[in-house]
Design a binder for these strands. Structure first.
Lengths: 188, 188
DNA sequence: ACCTGAACACCGTTCAAGT
DNA sequence: ACCTGAACACCGTTCAAGT
């Protein structure tokens, strides 16, 4: 890995300001929030936004990286407290909740598990895949999870559950119910 | 119901031409195909498109109504040939396939099952809901389907399975696998 | 090295004028 | 009664000029 040269002071200020504003904007208007508007609200030329974040995905990812990493840590916390099968189920639940409540996060996580094998792995993809992989292998070893499922299968299925729940009421009151059905099917 | 006055000849021609072109355009570019482009390709002013189809959803629905009705008929055909539980499973499979293969159809079906109780029921929503309701009550009577699920739950869950499968490979090779997991959970 | 903002291309939607 | 297409507002993206 090449050592990253520190950013010039004004560049760094802009970078951080953009992230703040972007997080607000995505929360408010969803994943299609106007990029131009984000630049303006950050007091920055639109070119500057593109310099730092060449694509919408890049900005979305940067804005939510902390939250995603929190989900990664959460997996380990649950693994310590609960038996593997329950830890996995609870983590999937929290993943679904985040997918629905944090606007724009669902599409971000979705892109992270699409079969673009050639695409370089995104940070958030790596974090989430790492977390679910640990939970899945523990549950499979324990014998409470079918062995013909990959970690990525579970991420995709959780995404599907989140989508179904979102259709139900736009919030996520049905996540538990729909996830319970899936969990039934996941048993060996 | 008020009797619909027949359209003027040129209006009718435009209407049909728009539908043809729209179906092609949606198939080619997905649900966000340019409306302006559709109007142009149909040899019609953009205002005319809006006169006939005030929203994108309206156009999408009109373009796919036949296909949706075919799905409705298919439900009855399956109900005659198969035991209720199997008929339901197979129909959900075909619904998922259509959702993925016919671009734009997934979002159309999704909107049809969102909890917009106040929104007037769309034609395609009515057709699909009718079909699944018949299959569901037969299966529940037979005893092969949990009774704490509504027909709309199943439509939403199928939508979720289609979404998950689409993430897997963009085509739908995983539909059978993912749907099988769901079917396990659906048993009483 | 980084930023700015005008310029370009594109899109959805409306509406006055035309037939 | 219906159609046309210019006009408007908006957005993403690029790039020459500026510091």
């Amino acid at each position: 890995m090449a050592q990253v040269r520190p950013m010039r002071a004004d560049a760094r200020r802009n970078y951080e300001r953009l992230l703040e504003v972007a997080a607000e904007a995505f929360a408010e208007h969803g994943e299609n929030a106007s990029l131009d508007d984000i630049a303006k609200r950050a007091g920055v030329g639109s070119g500057t936004l593109y310099r730092h974040f060449p694509t919408r995905q890049a900005l979305l990812e940067a804005a939510y990286v902390e939250r995603i990493e929190a989900l990664g840590d959460r997996a380990d916390a649950l693994a310590e407290r609960l038996p593997p099968g329950e830890a996995l189920a609870e983590w999937l639940y929290e993943l679904c909740v985040a997918s629905i409540q944090v606007r724009g996060m669902k599409s971000l996580l979705g892109k992270a598990v699409t079969d673009g094998t050639s695409v370089p792995l995104t940070t958030c993809g790596a974090v989430v895949k790492g977390a679910v992989t640990r939970l899945v292998s523990a549950a499979q070893t324990e014998g409470t999870l079918r062995t013909d499922l990959s970690p990525v299968d579970l991420l995709r299925l959780a995404h599907g559950v989140a989508t179904a729940s979102e259709l139900a009421d736009g919030e996520g009151r049905e996540i538990r119910r729909y996830l319970a059905l899936l969990t039934e099917g996941l048993r060996p």
